[in-house]
Structure formats: C-alpha cells, structure tokens
Computed example of a mutant assay.
Amino acid sequence: MMLLPCPNCGARNVSEFRYVGEAKTRPDPTTATPQEWRRHLYLHRNPAGWTRETWYHGSGCRRYFAIERNTVDNAVRTAGATS
C-alpha cells in the first residue's frame, strides 16, 4: 500500500487520489505557439528518480497539491498545496 501525504488531510491511501501529472508551468495562452502547446500537453520527461507531480484528493478535501516522488521506489519527499 502506498500512502500520500495530503497537506490538508494527512497521510492517506493512494486509492483516494488521482494522479494529474508532472508539475510544470503552463504556457501563456495568448502567446504560445501550437508547437509549445503540443510540447506542454504530450511530451513528458518520465525520469527514473525524483520528480515533482500534481495529485488531486478526490475522496477527501477535493484539493490539488504537489509532491516530490521518487519514481523508482515511490518514496515521497515533500508535499504542498497548489494554487
């Protein structure tokens, strides 16, 4: 069982959450080219090691938050709310 530390509810089973994806900056909609949108939506780093991710706690506080997770062993290093 994998536990994720929700900043509002505490550590909970991963089945309560939805993985949103890598935490990254969204391009400016007024100036972004189609190539920049394609890169943002479809190209992901997928590293083996520490990565910053966004998760949604659908069965709890219904908030988004970011964590740093090691994709090799699922260890979680930090947690925080997102805007």
Rank of each mutant, 00 (worst) to 15 (best):
A66H: 07
W55V: 00
T82H: 12
T71F: 08
A32R: 03
T31C: 04
T78D: 01
M1H: 10
W37I: 08
L3H: 15
T25G: 08
R38W: 14
L41R: 14
R18G: 04
S15I: 14
V72L: 15
R39T: 09
Y56H: 03
G80P: 00
I67N: 00
P27G: 01
P29R: 02
W55C: 00
R62V: 07
M1C: 06
R38S: 14
D73Q: 05
L4M: 04
E68P: 01
R69C: 03
Y19W: 13
Y64M: 06
T51N: 14
Y42N: 15
N70H: 02
Y19R: 09
P5I: 07
G80M: 10
T78A: 03
V14T: 08
R77S: 07
E16G: 06
P27W: 01
G21S: 04
S59Y: 10
H57S: 02
N70Q: 02
T33C: 04
E22H: 03
P27I: 02
T33W: 01
N13W: 07
L3Y: 13
A79W: 15
V76L: 06
Q35S: 13
T54K: 10
N70W: 01
S15N: 08
C61I: 01
N46Y: 14
W50K: 09
L41N: 15
R12G: 07
T31Q: 05
L43V: 11
G58I: 06
N74T: 01
R39A: 10
P5D: 05
K24F: 02
K24S: 06
A32I: 06
V72P: 03
W50P: 05
F17Y: 03
T33Q: 05
S15A: 09
T25C: 08
F17T: 00
Y56T: 00
A32C: 03
R18C: 06
L4E: 01
T71Y: 09
T30F: 14
Y56G: 00
T71D: 11
A81Y: 14
P7V: 04
A32E: 00
Y56F: 07
E36H: 14
E22P: 01
H44Y: 15
N8R: 12
P29F: 01
F17Q: 00
R38E: 09
P7W: 12
P7H: 04
A66S: 09
G49V: 00
